[in-house]
Nucleic acid binder design. Structure first.
Lengths: 220, 220
DNA sequence: CTTGACACTGAACATTTGTTCTGTTATTAT
DNA sequence: ATAATAACAGAACAAATGTTCAGTGTCAAG
């Protein structure tokens, strides 16, 4: 046996390196012949041979009968950025903005870029939006003026999730950990030194969304 | 003239949206016929017609006579991702770890990915490292258990910057806003309801680094 | 030595795919 | 209304490209 069981042969590495550089430069994958030209492999069938091995080893995915149908897995999956629309401010004294179900596709003038690895896996990105915290009224949620909260659109929450809530009786938006306990709602501040809010009637809490990520930039 | 000078027509947007989703799902660009199928354009020449316009408007680049030779430009700009080494925990009761000056390569698995747009512009990425906050002793800095703080390596601070400090007399690491005022150091908690620490002798504060970013992931 | 796996060659072939061309329909300006 | 330009249809064509296959060479194990 000439092929090592452990790791990649020099040709495998050369092909992967070329795939990555070509892709980042041109934005589309190379053809089999282009791969061969740049890795000193003279026959298309040999390139095909190595590509099949790389697919078997899960470095790439291929679509048969599709030209340049190569999907580089290792780098492309981990290096994904998501642009989340920053749709407004969240203030204690007023209802927070929630984007419509179909917010227009191409207006990410004011979007914040977040690595997908920071977000919960398997979430639909279309349901995510970001708000900038305005004022110091959410310090009991350990959220400061200027922080950015990334929200996931939802009307219901499971116990233990941090949610944005509109409290009808106080005319107030707040960020709290949500617990529904035998008919009563307990809203727990993130700051462990502060006491929870207990609400007997669950109907006066309107869940606006679920907090997915908090980002605080210390600029200057 | 039928074509609007301002902005993109619905078909332009539809094509761009399809390009982006196809590319992120499959890892390679769609063919002209695939674009047509998914945008209700029946003729390849019409798709070609729109692609040429999008290239003229600098939304894409095309390589002639190359199948799937489309490079989506707008998204590649936001493609700057930085991996910051997560070197340990920060606990109030013990000194925090500071990576050595020499470029010791870290395990890329234990790094966190951050969009460069979230970081201060022009910073040397080599000076950045991340710590996970352990325990609830930093809630006066609005930082919670489990939060990730991205630090910049430095031994000195300017007024108003949030820094990690080792207090000799208390044997304690703390995160505070730093102010040097005529020979005295004032350490201001991020939480505006809490009082500052005043220190007459600046020599007992050891600045470990400057806080650049705080990230809180609300998993589950 | 023989065998079998792996690595590789070269070419033919079928399909995919971009390009081009002629013509038609819609929209706008004069 | 008329002309001009943009938007679209359909088909034919040529090039790019993936696939397949019959061989050749190499190397290590039996």
């Amino acid at each position: 046996m000439a092929r090592k069981r452990t790791g990649l042969s020099p040709r495998h590495k050369k092909i992967l390196a070329f795939l990555e550089s070509f892709l980042s430069e041109r934005g589309y994958p190379p053809s089999i012949r282009e791969i061969g030209d740049h890795t000193q492999i003279s026959s298309t069938s040999v390139v095909n041979y190595y590509l099949n091995q790389l697919e078997e080893m899960n470095y790439i995915e291929r679509e048969s009968n599709v030209s340049r149908g190569i999907n580089l897995l290792k780098t492309s999956l981990s290096n994904t950025l998501v642009s989340i629309p920053l749709v407004g401010n969240i203030v204690a004294g007023e209802p927070m903005p929630v984007p419509a179900s179909d917010f227009s596709y191409y207006d990410p003038d004011s979007g914040i870029d977040v690595a997908r690895s920071l977000l919960p896996a398997g979430d639909r990105m279309e349901d995510l939006y970001a708000l900038r915290v305005h004022g110091e009224s959410m310090i009991d949620a350990m959220v400061n003026d200027g922080d950015i909260v990334v929200m996931k659109k939802t009307n219901q929450a499971r116990n233990g999730e941090m949610v944005a809530i509109w409290l009808n009786d106080r005319d107030e938006t707040t960020l709290k950990y949500f617990y529904l306990e035998n008919g009563h709602v307990r809203l727990q501040p993130a700051n462990p030194t502060m006491k929870p809010i207990l609400i007997d009637d669950p109907s006066i809490v309107e869940i606006q969304g679920k907090v997915v990520l908090v980002i605080r930039q210390l600029d200057q």
